[in-house]
Design a binder for these strands. Sequence first.
DNA 1: TCCCGAAGTTCGATTTAAATG
DNA 2: GCATTTAAATCGAACTTCGGG
Lengths: 365, 365
Amino acid sequence: MPFEFVRGLIGGSNLMVTIHDVAKSSGFSITTVSIVLNDAPLARYIPLETKNRIKKIAKTLGYRPNVFARSLRSKRSNTVGVIVFDITDPYCTHILRGIELSLYQSSYISIFADAQNDRARFERYLEMLLDRRVEGLITLANSLLLDLDILAVLEKRNVPMVLIGRELKSLAMSAVIIDNAAGARAALEHLYTLGHRHIGFIRGPKMLADSRERWKGVRSFAHDAGLVLDPKMIVDLTDLYDPTSAFEGGYKLTQELLRRERPFTAIHAFDDMTAFGAIRALGKSKLKVPDDYSVIGFDDVAPAALYAPPLTTIRQPMETMGAMGVGILLDAITASRESRTFSPVQRKVAPELLVRESTKALAQP
Amino acid sequence: MPFEFVRGLIGGSNLMVTIHDVAKSSGFSITTVSIVLNDAPLARYIPLETKNRIKKIAKTLGYRPNVFARSLRSKRSNTVGVIVFDITDPYCTHILRGIELSLYQSSYISIFADAQNDRARFERYLEMLLDRRVEGLITLANSLLLDLDILAVLEKRNVPMVLIGRELKSLAMSAVIIDNAAGARAALEHLYTLGHRHIGFIRGPKMLADSRERWKGVRSFAHDAGLVLDPKMIVDLTDLYDPTSAFEGGYKLTQELLRRERPFTAIHAFDDMTAFGAIRALGKSKLKVPDDYSVIGFDDVAPAALYAPPLTTIRQPMETMGAMGVGILLDAITASRESRTFSPVQRKVAPELLVRESTKALAQP
DNA sequence: TCCCGAAGTTCGATTTAAATG
DNA sequence: GCATTTAAATCGAACTTCGGG
């Protein structure tokens, strides 16, 4: 059956113009059209006039290459996968924004998946992304989701990957993380400079590497400044971690600290959500922030600036971190395509103290 | 060149197993394997034993169909597109969550794009999704992004679409929206029931249909209850709308209301972000919420529950709305595939009053 | 005619190898 | 050999058609 006839029959909804149409319209072969439109190596032998003719016709016809055909043949998807552990977590969205921003300039597009803190979902989405032949993967994962089995799959399939927000010391793998120790240190230094000497500490869940690093920072400053840490004023969030639980944890642990009846004037919270909980608990007891207590958080999630009072915190430059992740991934993909080896890059980003209104100099006694 | 040889040469990274491999391993033809694995109509003639053999071998070989080949041939992508106007807006993320949740059960996967409130981005992403042959589109858009030109493209390409969060009265199009009038009415009724008679109103940007609808609700309740609305106590957010500007708008407009020196005891804010701004402004003037002023918002974004004080607000059931959108879209896609006509469905969702701690009964004078 | 299976065509592009003047 | 162009093979699966018991 002649081609034109069939095409005519289809009509209506399926009127996609193919490379075939461009070839016929321009009078050149499919091959030539393909070479010109992709600016392939052979294109340098083709006269400018021919190129322009073809390009113009492609444009007027509204030709758009079929991505499926292209990827099938070329074995390239021009796609990277992005998995986050919880899209409703404001921490995720700003990193996502950074990723999107810097991917936008590249020729890659992203396919996004939200694991919803659920391991089964994570695995299913990973499989889905692999089915879609992503050329690389960015993962924003917490420890619940990530383990060696999963990473082994990627290794075997030779898919470059970078982790944002956590590191895996057990494995050589590209990662972008915040300098937790420096951040927690800066937070404590800020409180100390304001005159606070009796400080309550709400540490993160033991399970998280972040918690350990941040505590290191606290101890290092305490040591340097000769500040003694009262073990009775140190409490820990539980290991069941999600954004809401951090708020509730902050709330309950602050009540706990209050109950211990040791005088203190400031709280060093694991993160912003914890700090919000702490402020709530203080407010509940008619204690005012920052007049009675100073509170400092970590992260600078979106609500921090809008809170009452606006929260002093340690800012993670999330957009930057996302952008860095993309940079590393793109390098890794390029290396992989040129069959070069690529040594994992670990980048540790400096956080920034953001003084707002939840901390205040201690009144001189 | 014999097939096995080539395949052997490739080795290493590219060892994907194809339907060809399954056919060879099982001793059946490619056709039979395809029929069995897809449970195609013809499969009913194939003996169970054959089916099981083929399935088992596919499994042990770890066969995964190549999505590009499949989509190329079948002309189906099993994909729907989702465009949101701003992923850092908490309103978006919870609707996204609802979408994801109910898409997860279906055979569709989603490709997500964040327009970042930028029109050019919106158009580029739309084009990208169309290139990927999405079978349907869910859009979470504000009025900046959406106009008739864009929708005409979808119409022409015959791609079903549903809008979440806004309606386009000019066009017959499926949409899921909140009942703004009922919500605003309920908010005012709540304040009224608590005894408030002198209330400041911060209305939304005039440009937004939401603003108009909510104001209708306010007026309808005021009329029914015989409450007089003082024009001097009504102020409007500017048309340049983004989440932060709503906060700042709420802040500044509350100061403005205070400056007018008419006694009032409550603020009816356009949305939660505006309410947060209002609470901040009151705090700045040493006025306390809810003791001196009651404040009510709209939306129930994530920070609302954690705010100090927790915000009384009108909750939009965002996950439900996302799920509804998916339901409608899937119906539309099915109809489109069976060449049935599908009349646009408009669903208006009832909001819910959430009483927390930012509102309080007026003390008897 | 019913059942079972296979050969061959097709989707829309990229790429290799080769033909033309 | 050089510049210019193209026929034909290929990617991996789905589908149409056909043949034999």
